[in-house]
Design a protein around this nucleic acid. Sequence first.
DNA 1: TTCTTATGCATATAATTTCTATGTATTAAA
DNA 2: TTTAATACATAGAAATTATATGCATAAGAA
Lengths: 113, 113
Amino acid sequence: MKTNNLYKGSLTTIILKLLNEHDKMYGYEITQKVKEITKGELNITEGALYPSLHKLEADGLVDVEFRKVNNRMRKYYMLTELGTQETVNKLAQLEDYIRNMRALVNPKFRTLD
Amino acid sequence: MKTNNLYKGSLTTIILKLLNEHDKMYGYEITQKVKEITKGELNITEGALYPSLHKLEADGLVDVEFRKVNNRMRKYYMLTELGTQETVNKLAQLEDYIRNMRALVNPKFRTLD
DNA sequence: TTCTTATGCATATAATTTCTATGTATTAAA
DNA sequence: TTTAATACATAGAAATTATATGCATAAGAA
């Protein structure tokens, strides 16, 4: 994910949130959606995406469904019940992370909370 | 750093910013300052901190200075010129990261900017 | 028509970062 | 006198992501 390694650890959160919002998506679609939303600033590589999706599947957070579209196979991913719960957790963790990082780098935020 | 792995990749940014703000600090002081600012939510482990500080030193971003305080050695770290420049870069990257993550997880922010 | 770009899946190996566990040593407090 | 706090450090493991590569189809450009 580019030269900025702050994104390390956030891939799962990104995937879960997008699936939470779109019901079902396939791999390539996820990479394009991320690129679109971040205006090209963040590009998910396939070498990161697919292992991550497979892990989500193995952990029971997503279900998969193959479908043929335009004579080409697509593997759709969708959240399970467990995946929806985990999405909530991950988003809360992201909020905590942002709040703590703001406090650390911006002294103005230190007395707030 | 706890169970939240979003912090992966942010340790360097945290250290640089604290050094930028305090002129000189020693390792243990950094761990305590982080704990204090985040109200205990983030604890930097020594196994992460010292290798990171040594890398910053090897890369010429910090200078070191040993000093004996209360009959105990302290190794103080302070930013070099290069380190100050890198701090600016890292903080800008953090802002970009937060902006992109907000856009990804909060559709409301997508039309802004 | 052939080459390139876009679409779509995937893995192997490496690189990076951080964690866990461990070690040494001094000081202060219970 | 034993525990907690202070202070440094490393070895090895774990987790995450990047780089490079492979296969295959479709569409558009040259």
